Simulated assay, not measured.
Amino acid sequence: MRRPRRVLVIGGGAAGSAGTILLRRAGVRVDLVEARADWNATAGSGITLQGNALRVLRELGVWERVRASGFAFDALGITAPDGTVLHVARDTRSGGDDLPSTVGIQRSRLQGILADAVRASGATVRLGIRAVRLDQDAEGVTVRFGDGTEARHDLVIAADGLGSATRAAIGVTAEPEPTGMAIWRVAAPRPADVTHSNVTYGGAAYIAGYCPTGDATLYAFVVEADRDRASIPPESYADEMRRLTAGYGGHWPAITAHLTDPSQVNYARFHQMLVEGSWHRGRVVLAGDAAHGCPPTLAQGAALSLEDALVLAELLTDGRDWDDALFQEYYERRVPRVRAVVEASVRIGRWQLDGVRDADVPGLMGRTMAMLTELP
């Protein structure tokens, strides 16, 4: 009789949490370590989850909580810098007709829902812990942790983000590269008539937009050319975002009025990355942002991470040996879909940086979202 398998998941974000929940459901013993001591201390103010992400969240059993905690909608508004509504388009329901096109939700609420589901699954969770050494052989991985403890695992899933230390530790040389853009984000009260995302192309920034995240909240963002973060003191973040948004009309004056606390403003550079060839080395497998990253121009980062976890868990629990062939199948199932999203996300940003006026942004978005309606 085969002994119960034991998996270590490094990282408690979307990919790590989803993988843990699905493997525990199949009876696999899972230990999850997360470097942050406060699991809910997530960067950013809000997140946009499109239908293909919602499809995975439903599979995890958390969809009803996500729907109750966020704000569901089926449209995207395009406005002029002065606030004039130019067009309201119906969004693709990439998760199927029985799910909304999009849900906006506060990042901390989403993380809290996933963390609760991980704990309820029976996984062992340790916070404020890093894996500092991995020694592999043909049967598994011996992992040494920052607190001096060691444990033996049959498989390690590295879901420790775009700057993954595990990726580097196993000899994968891919690194995230800046795309030339950066984003400012902040939470604000939601006016009653903001019932879907609205975006403006042009004005003082490349993109300015806002998305409802709950009954009383939204998150607002502006995208500008990348600047050296070291040149922007954190205490000036509110001033910088207020300067960029001052010329926009519509709901922006009300949003800008809440831009007073620099600690509530998040600034992040856009990056791209795609690990080529395979997403594993021996018994260590990459998932989510550790394997790929893209700018949020298509709002697909979390969705791709959740899909990774779904596909990997499916393969790991179908009764086959955990070997190179299985891990390579995981890569080959995921990489065409991920590549298409990464390339489209980067291309949209590049068109804006280069000032391409006849770029078919709606067409590229539509084709990409149509592809994502297919099951991963």
Rank of each mutant, 00 (worst) to 15 (best):
T84R: 15
Q106D: 13
G12V: 02
R109A: 13
L375D: 14
W252R: 01
T48R: 10
A115N: 12
R29T: 13
D98L: 11
A299M: 11
R24C: 13
F73Y: 14
S231L: 13
V223R: 01
R55P: 07
V9P: 02
G96V: 03
A290F: 03
A89P: 02
A123N: 02
Q264M: 12
G146M: 10
R281T: 14
R29H: 15
P253M: 11
C211Y: 00
R119Q: 13
G95S: 06
D323Q: 09
Q111K: 10
Q352T: 08
D137T: 11
G104T: 03
L110A: 07
A18T: 01
A238D: 08
V7N: 00
A257Y: 06
G363E: 06
G161Q: 01
A169R: 15
A115I: 06
L259T: 02
Y219L: 00
D308E: 10
S17M: 03
R55K: 09
T92K: 08
G27F: 01
G61V: 07
S121R: 05
V88R: 14
E332N: 13
T92I: 08
L316E: 02
A238I: 04
A123V: 09
V103W: 00
A188V: 12
D154N: 07
L326N: 03
A302R: 03
E34C: 06
W39K: 03
V222Q: 05
L114W: 05
R25P: 07
H87E: 15
V356T: 12
S69Q: 13
G96F: 04
P212G: 07
I157N: 00
M365S: 12
A204S: 15
D38R: 14
P296E: 04
R90G: 06
L32M: 10
I78E: 11
S17K: 05
G349R: 03
S69T: 13
S236W: 11
I10D: 03
G12Y: 02
L244K: 04
E177Q: 15
V356Y: 10
E332A: 12
L218E: 01
V33I: 11
R334L: 05
G16I: 01
T260F: 08
V141K: 05
A299W: 09
R3E: 14
A168N: 09
R347F: 07
V342N: 03
R93K: 14
W279A: 03
G319K: 02
S45T: 09
Y201D: 01
G13V: 04
L127Y: 07
T142D: 15
Y331V: 04
G288N: 07
W63Q: 09
R283D: 10
R109H: 13
L8S: 02
G13E: 03
P233G: 02
R58V: 08
A115L: 12
